[in-house]
């Protein structure tokens, strides 16, 4: 990847992010407010379903749920949008030279703007449910940054692969559904048995990077604790791996994009 043009093209990254954010809510009445309303609405419905139908005994379920939801929804939106970012900008890529990794990165970043706005919803829920919080919430920036880095890596990988294998567009939806159930968004991780076949599932859930990001966010908000060093290791390792693999695959394939678009 050629980072020399980075300074020259930095304004482009900003413009691309601005465009995505603007386009998303253009011509809707409530506009950007949807970034807050959407997670709130989802949370209300899921809280009703899980506290009445499934009798979940998680303490402070709305906040617990929302921590998982915000992180997973960001990952979901960011990676599925970057998946099609190269094919979606085919017209541009075949006519002007621009650093190509800007397309997946800008998509992840515009979803990130959305995530930051959605945190207003979390604050609302914390205030309404009178959840006690402490100064440890400032450590919530760590899981947020980790999930951003991880999504950039995954996004670069997906966008590059999708150019030659368009099946990814359809396959990735299935993968995301699996990731959703393998992340303890609305169930407690302790619910999973540690032995037998389900024990293996628990292993996957615990190894799932998204789980670790969500758990760290809950540690800072609900647990009122500072994340341990071990938690940081568990979060940072997948980020670094995703970034290295994503950047490597992208660099390897990027010169062939134009021939396959």
């Amino acid at each position: 990847m050629n980072f020399t043009g980075l300074k020259k093209y930095m304004p482009l990254l900003k413009e691309l992010i601005r465009r995505d954010v603007k386009i998303k809510y253009r011509r809707s009445f409530l506009g950007f407010l949807w970034s807050v309303l959407n997670p709130l609405g989802m949370m209300v419905i899921m809280t009703i379903v899980f506290s009445n139908v499934f009798r979940s005994d998680i303490k402070n379920f709305p906040v617990y749920l929302m921590c998982g939801q915000l992180i997973f929804n960001f990952f979901n939106e960011a990676t599925s949008m970057s998946l099609s970012s190269i094919i979606g900008n085919a017209g541009l890529i075949s006519k002007v030279y621009v650093p190509k990794y800007f397309f997946p990165v800008s998509r992840v970043c515009s979803s990130f703007v959305n995530l930051l706005t959605s945190f207003v919803a979390l604050v609302i829920v914390i205030v309404v449910t009178r959840t006690p919080i402490s100064w440890t919430v400032i450590f919530a920036v760590f899981p947020v940054i980790y999930v951003l880095l991880f999504s950039i890596g995954v996004g670069m990988f997906l966008s590059a692969i999708t150019v030659s294998f368009r099946d990814m567009i359809h396959l990735y939806g299935v993968v995301l559904t699996a990731v959703m159930y393998l992340t303890p968004i609305f169930y407690p991780i302790t619910m999973l048995p540690t032995e037998g076949t389900l024990g293996k599932v628990a292993m996957i859930v615990k190894g799932n990077p998204i789980t670790n990001f969500v758990e760290m966010l809950r540690t800072t908000v609900l647990g009122q604790e500072i994340p341990s060093l071990w938690q940081h290791v568990k979060c940072l390792t997948p980020c670094v791996l995703a970034l290295i693999i994503g950047a490597y695959v992208f660099k390897k394939l990027q010169d062939d994009f134009i021939l396959k678009l």
């Binding site: 900003k14 413009e15 541009l92 002007v96």
Partner: peptide, 14 residues
């Protein structure tokens, strides 16, 4: 908006 987007694509200063 397109003036600024396209300008950025061409690498022009904002």
């Amino acid at each position: 908006e397109n003036v600024f987007l396209n300008g950025a694509i061409l690498g022009y200063d904002k």
